[in-house]
Amino acid sequence: MSAALDLITRVRGVRGAMLVSAEDGLVVAEQLMEGIKGSAVAALAASLAGRLRRAMEASGTGRSVFWHLQAEQGALLVVPSGEESGNLLVVAVAEPDVNIGLVRLELLRAAEAGT
């Protein structure tokens, strides 16, 4: 798994990658740059993932396979993974101008490698 996280962090603009337990919001594995608090990323990403999942299921679009929170000074990119695509989250924290397509690909690869 750490090799897969390593590949994510090699994408220019990615400041960290993690594997997170979706139910608990706890860190399973992480590779982060200085200044990023893994426990906070894990807890908040899992919480947002849970709320988004409910909204998406209600809208009939089904479970999310990738989501991306864009903010002024950065972005959070997430691919649900694991059994039933919901037990784990592969998470990347990135600069705002990161190549989203590339990070998405690496997250999906990491999700496959991790299951």
Binding site: G25, L26, S39, A43, A46, S47, G50
Partner: peptide
């Protein structure tokens, strides 16, 4: 309650 919070959030 797990449907509105999580251990990670409580710890944070």
């Amino acid at each position: 309650d797990l449907d509105v919070s999580s251990l990670g959030i409580v710890q944070l």
